[in-house]
Design a protein around this nucleic acid. Structure first.
Lengths: 340, 340
DNA sequence: CTGAAAGCGCTTACAG
DNA sequence: CTGAAAGCGCTTACAG
């Protein structure tokens, strides 16, 4: 039941039980160690995590704040984070911040009161929320968001470069009128990538639509584009979800993709490969990002830094490439992550 | 910092601080109470959850075991559970069980050692895993799975009836050759619903394909059906994901849905409304299920029971109904949950 | 209505 | 290499 039972069974003090279970801080004689391990096994003993957390001042848990875990990108990111944290013996306390009842700052304070040893934020923080995080004295990392976040660790991808690459691919198809559908919240680096790719190719800027992420945002964007009269020849969506929403609206109005309008998106979620046509997309390396985030939390003495990985261009059908064509998967650039 | 600071500031004992913070077990004079509350506010005090958990023997957390949170159905269920638990002041400790490294039993024991006050299982358990759960002495509820689970609470939908209803709808379209694509794991009640609907309509049983849930399972099923020669006139998929996989494969092979093959599925996830054609599906009331699960955990003295809610038929395009037709949403049966 | 004190199950200096 | 003991920050009988 408790470490006292184990100690009694093994004929040692409770301190010794701790020493062997934690591999320290004191050494234990091999034979004693075996006796303890045996007792643990026989008794089926499991340390009480709450007692441990109280004693150590920190629990073996990480907190994860995600805006909405239903979004496939974040769902996959959560999954990767679950694996990565489990791999280092931690658990994940997850909260969705898309809740009206409670403020995100409150949710973060609540996590802190649970003695989490690190905080992972898959969401964009307001300045005041960020200062709350900083005041906590808990290592924190922002994951999957735009650019660096001042005082905190952050890991993400090079959005501008990723968008540049997908856009360049659309340009290679000969499309000259390429629209962009992306976020208005903060400055979205993907928008810059789109801009730069068009500029580099001496093409005029296409239509720019700001829309919420998610299927509906994409759907609404398509409706807007259609109402405008002339459709763009191609559109770059800032997320797979937006891309899928576009697809739904276009299909509904008998607009063929890619024949009438070509499409490419961002994220590389699983569903992007199971819509018709399959979406060409810039994939984010979520497992690597998750592992990087966990690693940073585990080494809180590491200087503050932003880790940006490269996206991987997955060329499929929505851009106009032959569905049976060569290199339908991952033939794109696959640069190494520019870390540091 | 700690309740001692609050007590000092308010000029009371630490016990009194507890009394007001917990609304008991003793009454506190209104004025004293105000002084304490003030101190809490001024000092920005938050109780240490680990200490509380140690003292009470249970933490304000629920554990959630989900097979794979990336599956849209489970992603949405997790989201609903997050809301429902937050609404009662609890946090969710989530673990995915699709991990090769660690056994699910081990994951469950780990959750228990963290003093969770309840366990939610969105997964099918082996007999031995179930006995582990029972041995924990923690209220546990299985959610979203087939039928009842012996010793534990369970909440789900009436799979058979839901499948029956969707299948009946396909039959109303005049389709006579209706296949089923669903799980082989355990006896899937949806399969029974399909069987019964066909039988009731005096139709022969269509092709039965057992496949893993998920997009790929649906994709593979479609390939199998196509290889078999004559395609069924319609197929009932046991999940939206299977349905979407079917759709992808059919589209790839220029088979029109619903003209050549009609489709209907199960779950009612958001993505089902954003594929082309939009999927007709039997929607599970996830928010209600989540709230029911949480309520059961909160009242562990409630006798063991299975709560089955009705699905809601969402008629859209994949079944062959006109996309612009009347009642394109939720015109189906909407029975009240048969609880008890 | 309020308080002093024991106890929850760990960890970890401190002695030996 | 091992153990007795204090302490982590709460809760809650038990007295008053």
């Amino acid at each position: 039941m408790t470490r006292a039972d184990v100690a009694r069974y093994a004929g040692v003090s409770t301190a010794v039980v701790s020493y062997v279970l934690n591999d320290g801080p004191k050494a234990v004689a091999p034979l004693t160690r075996e006796r303890v391990l045996d007792a643990v096994r026989v008794l089926g003993y499991r340390p009480n995590a709450a007692a441990r957390a109280l004693s150590k001042g920190t629990a073996d848990m990480f907190g994860l704040v995600v805006h909405d875990n239903r979004n496939p990108f974040f769902a996959e990111l959560c999954h990767a984070l679950d694996q990565a944290t489990a791999d280092v013996g931690r658990s994940l306390l997850i909260v969705n911040s898309d809740r009206s009842q409670v403020s995100t700052a409150e949710q973060i304070r609540d996590l802190a009161s649970r003695q989490i040893g690190g905080l992972i934020i898959a969401d964009v923080l307001t300045a005041s929320e960020q200062s709350v995080v900083e005041s906590l004295g808990i290592p924190a990392v922002v994951i999957g968001q735009f650019g660096e976040t001042d005082g905190l660790y952050s890991v993400g991808v090079d959005f501008a470069r990723g968008a540049y690459e997908v856009c360049a691919h659309l340009i290679e198809h000969g499309y000259r009128d390429i629209a962009f559908a992306g976020s208005a919240a903060r400055y979205d680096e993907r928008e810059r990538g789109w801009r730069e790719a068009l500029t580099a190719a001496r093409l005029p800027l296409g239509t720019l639509v700001h829309t919420p992420f998610g299927y509906q945002g994409g759907y609404d964007t398509a409706m807007k584009l259609m109402r405008q009269g002339a459709l763009p020849r191609a559109v770059l969506a800032a997320s797979d979800q937006i891309g899928i929403g576009l697809l739904a609206a276009f299909h509904e109005h008998r607009i063929r993709v890619p024949q009438d309008v070509a499409l490419a998106s961002f994220d590389g979620t699983m569903i992007a490969d199971f819509v018709s046509p399959r979406l060409t997309t810039a994939a984010q390396p979520m497992e690597r990002m998750a592992r990087a985030a966990v690693e940073l939390l585990l080494n809180p003495d590491t200087p503050r830094q932003h880790r940006a990985y490269s996206t991987q261009l997955r060329i499929r059908e929505s851009c106009g490439c032959d569905s049976e064509g060569s290199g339908s998967e991952g033939s794109g650039s696959e640069g190494s992550g520019s870390e540091g």
